[in-house]
Design a protein around this nucleic acid. Structure first.
Ligand SMILES: [Mn+2]
Ligand SMILES: [Mn+2]
Ligand SMILES: [Zn+2]
Ligand SMILES: [Zn+2]
Lengths: 126, 126
DNA sequence: ATTATTAATGCAACTTAGTTGCAAAAATAT
DNA sequence: ATATTTTTGCAACTAAGTTGCATTAATAAT
């Protein structure tokens, strides 16, 4: 694996994740950054940062890709059960720190568990 | 809601789901049926059958849509926790009948829980 | 059984997320 | 300062899914 260079674009993306408390969809990032960098660059940087362990990805309820820098995640802890919550009202997606226990399955080897919860977030509950 | 007509195409799709023990991706269905019906028709029938409660859908690990006729699912039970298992070797996707308990969250209302497990299926474990 | 009504289908054109190859530019190493 | 390697922009592409509309098939009414 090659070293990830700290280019202007990489720094921009990393600071966006630092500043954000929730997950970010690739579509939104591409849109938000379209004057500063090409969408191909966004895709490639996200891929690299994920390979590096800086961020992690998952699929939202509509099949689109999301990335987040989760506080509890470190480079080699990415295969534990780590649920995400998607608000049906405001569209916000958040990492959850709760534990979800997956029962062992006979005859099958579980290698990863993706849990996506959908509902109303704290802000939208009123 | 309008009545779903039992057209030739609808019958074809329903018998495919009856005969199949696992979930089916829309992509595969479109490919498999391309001589018999238009892909738009496949998409629309699946949508209707889901609305009717005959089948249910979920998103696979790559963000593509899958449908299955699950034995435990009836029309109004679609919001319970119902995990799916995707084999990383053969690509098969199955409905699981195990229960996954999602802890209650304060400040958030959980309306649905999608659980996708990935690993090796029974056939691929050798 | 014919006809009228309504729902379903095919088709072509479109939208959008994501990918690829390659030349140019920016980082880093020497 | 120069050489090396990585990253970027761009344009073109792929593939999943959607839409509008004219035609056809299914069902209801006569
Ligand atoms: Mn997370
Ligand atoms: Mn199922
Ligand atoms: Zn919200
Ligand atoms: Zn398998």
């Amino acid at each position: 694996m090659s070293v990830v260079r700290k280019t202007k674009s990489v720094k921009t993306l990393m600071s966006i994740f630092e500043a954000s408390g929730s997950a970010l969809s690739v579509v939104d990032l591409v849109e938000q950054l379209k004057v500063q960098m090409n969408k191909t660059t966004v895709y490639r940087i996200l891929e690299r940062l994920e390979g590096e362990g800086t961020i992690h990805s998952f699929i939202g309820s509509n099949g689109l890709k999301w990335y987040a820098k989760c506080s509890t995640c470190t480079k080699h802890e990415h295969d534990d059960v780590h649920p995400h919550f998607e608000c049906r009202d405001c569209g916000k997606v958040e990492c959850l720190e709760i534990e979800v226990t997956i029962p062992k399955l006979k005859n099958r080897l579980i290698e990863s568990a993706d849990v996506l919860l959908t509902g109303q977030c704290a802000d939208c509950l009123n």
